[in-house]
């Protein structure tokens, strides 16, 4: 691939940028740990989609029942 082509220069921007990072390595490590905690632990184990668990495919009826019943005296 020609080194002055757009695709090469685009790839090279990221490649050399990531390769030469100093503080960026620490920050990326923190970002990845944070995303892992959020998506692989918190989302999976602590934040299920409530309606999909309790009323799969029937969400509107479930919410209707909730909204109507909660208005009862």
């Amino acid at each position: 691939m020609r080194k002055d082509s757009f695709i090469y220069r685009f790839f090279n921007l990221y490649y050399e940028g990531f390769r030469d990072m100093k503080l960026g390595r620490t920050l990326w490590t923190i970002i990845l740990i944070k995303l892992f905690i959020m998506f692989a632990i918190l989302k999976v184990f602590f934040f299920p989609n409530f309606l999909k668990e309790h009323a799969p495919g029937n969400e509107s009826s479930y919410v209707a029942t909730e909204l109507i019943d909660r208005a009862e005296p």
């Binding site: 299920p48 409530f50 969400e59």
Partner: peptide, 11 residues
């Protein structure tokens, strides 16, 4: 929103 506030989220 999806877990604690599901009625709100749907509404």
């Amino acid at each position: 929103f999806g877990t604690n506030w599901s009625n709100y989220s749907w509404f």
